[in-house]
Design a protein around this nucleic acid. Structure first.
Length: 516
RNA sequence: GCCCCGGUGGUGUAGUCCGGCCCAGCAUUGGGGACUUUCGCUCCCCCGACCCGGGUUCGAAUCCCGGCCGGGGCACCA
């Protein structure tokens, strides 16, 4: 290699220079294509309001927001609230839940638009396309059309009817003569297209379903590919970043743009994203929230932005992970561990430390010097200036009892030495009424022995705490008294247990577990 | 059946367009260690990858051809 390079330097030195100086693309996300062709980068978020934003949807939001900021562009929130279908149902609450999720992510939209306000616009274009014979009203049975026409690439009789006849049929769709399924508008994309998925796709159809915003004012609704074919142009969208589940729709959009000779927004797709440790199902979440098996839209099992906020997940942790995925078209499967790792880095320094014991085994302590009436533990080990939490050691009927984690009790052998963190060293007595014998106070003794240092709670002052786990299960445990002075909303660390956020203090303390 | 898209360590990603700065970088996970009165944070170390086969070339993760494997579309859903 070096020899070759030397040889090249000898025979053609000028070839080396430019190569060496060639601009290396910055690491990270690529530039947006063809930016110079647009007066301004304009992008859009187009959620279907069927529920709150969840971790899966967040990729779309984060990516679009990132690029809009990078190019100082404009971001439009467009509720893609066409009528949907039997399994894609509009959820009225989503109109509030989605903006809440955007707030959590720190995403600001320049304006908000509702697809359901724009039906007349789509009708205008539909009529125009029909008049130009670029679209037709098809009254064939959907299933037979699929089998006999689409699959075989054979046009149906409706395709060749006159524009006048088609306008008459169009009026019948609007006035209710045609009921749902009886007729639909097809775009003349071409029956001879090699890809059957694209052949004369339906762009508007009849639905009698009531809409949460506009009620039953409209009975003809556009499909995504058509409404966006129009709106991406009408709204001046320059760049579209979305999942590759929409590439077929993108192709149909392009056909619409071509029919009107409109400039094409740049289409950028990314692959499917799965989480190894999170099952994302809006319809299931919706069901469970409705019947009350989930605590609400902030239940951890929904994986909604609300649920992450409740658990104290920093939105920047999610953003970091999502941006790290880039714009690859490959389907990927990642773990929430990546988000948790970022979150720990971001929030470890702020989290006050506390002791929490889930299934306490009560130990009767003996030979603790009488002058020991409290223990002091740092609020945060790396920041002594934040002070200490006091853990009172109150005797009752001359007994001093503390609780340790059942698993710790199991793991420490009879007579084994261990340390109750920030308190003292003991030897364990696995007698019928478990106890522990005071051994010493110095932590050095434990270090030398390599013995465990565990968390504990005093029986007399322990505070009951309910903790919601990631799987929705609620466990009840006891925390040290200092937790009573922790404000609601604080991200805390239960030492040796994990991080969580106090989301309620009255009437009792409740914590949402975040991660280890 | 017809169409489309992917394939770099366990996971994700950079590099691929414009072949040599790549015996492949980064992050995370896992393992080990330092620090530490937490199984946290921080720091250090280690394990670990270009799907396969041809071809072009002085040189291929990168270009060409052929396979293999995987994902997806073919809804009057978004």
């Amino acid at each position: 290699m070096d020899e070759q390079r030397a040889e090249l330097a000898r025979i053609a030195p000028d070839l080396l220079g430019p190569a060496a100086e060639r601009k290396i693309e910055p690491k990270g996300l690529p530039d947006l294509p063809n930016v110079q062709a647009w007066p301004k980068v304009v992008m859009r978020l187009a959620p279907f309001p069927s529920g709150p934003l969840h971790v899966g949807n967040s990729r779309m939001v984060i990516l679009n927001d990132y690029y809009v900021r990078r190019y100082a562009g404009e971001l439009i929130l467009v509720f893609d609230d066409t009528i949907g279908s039997e399994d894609k149902v509009l959820e009225p609450d989503a109109y509030d839940l989605i903006p809440q999720g955007l707030d959590y992510l720190g995403v600001k939209c320049d304006r908000t638009i509702y697809k359901s306000d724009r039906l007349e616009l789509f009708y205008k274009y539909a009529r125009d396309l029909i008049q130009k014979s670029l679209a037709y009203v098809c009254t064939c049975n959907a299933e037979t059309w699929r089998k006999e026409n689409k699959a075989k690439g054979i046009p149906c009789a409706c395709r060749n009817t006159s524009p006048e006849e088609n306008i008459r049929r169009w009026e019948k769709m609007l006035d209710g003569t045609y009921s749902a399924k009886a007729a639909a508008v097809r775009l003349k994309t071409g029956m001879d297209l090699p890809d059957p998925a694209l052949r004369d796709h339906v762009i508007l159809r009849v639905s009698e379903t009531e809409h949460p915003r506009v009620g039953s004012r409209y009975r003809v609704w556009p499909l995504l590919e058509f409404s966006w074919g129009i709106d991406d142009h009408e709204l001046g969208i320059s760049h579209i970043i979305r999942g590759k589940d929409l590439v077929k729709e993108g192709k149909i959009e392009e056909l619409v743009w071509n029919m009107y000779s409109w400039k094409h927004p740049e289409l950028i797709y990314y692959g499917r994203l799965k989480f190894e440790d999170a099952t994302l199902s809006k319809s299931k979440s919706r069901r469970e929230v409705k019947i009350g098996t989930y605590s609400g839209w902030d239940d951890p099992r929904t994986w909604s932005m609300q649920s992450l906020a409740k658990r104290g997940i920093d939105p920047n942790a999610l953003k970091k992970v999502m941006l790290d995925l880039g714009l690859s078209l490959a389907d990927i499967s990642i773990s929430m561990k990546a988000v948790y790792s970022e979150n720990r880095k971001l929030k470890d320094t702020e989290a006050p430390r506390l002791f929490f014991v889930e299934f306490p085994v009560w130990l009767n302590l003996t030979r603790v010097p009488a002058d020991v009436v409290k223990a002091e533990a740092p609020v945060h080990p790396d920041f002594p200036e934040r002070g200490f939490r006091e853990i009172p050691l109150t005797r009752k009927a001359r007994k001093l009892i503390v609780g340790i984690q059942g698993t710790d009790y199991e793991h420490i052998e009879e007579g084994g030495i261990f340390r109750m963190k920030d308190f003292a060293n003991f030897t364990l007595q696995k007698t019928p009424t478990p106890g522990a014998l005071f051994h010493s106070r110095e932590v050095e003794r434990i270090r030398e022995a390599g013995a465990p240092i565990i968390q504990w709670v005093p029986k007399e002052a322990a505070v009951p705490v309910e903790m919601t786990l990631v799987d929705g299960k609620k466990i009840t445990g006891l925390a040290e008294p200092a937790i009573s002075r922790i404000p609601v909303g604080t991200f805390v660390q239960f030492e040796r247990v994990g991080f969580g956020r106090v989301f309620e203090a009255d009437p009792s303390i409740r914590v949402a577990f975040a991660h280890k």
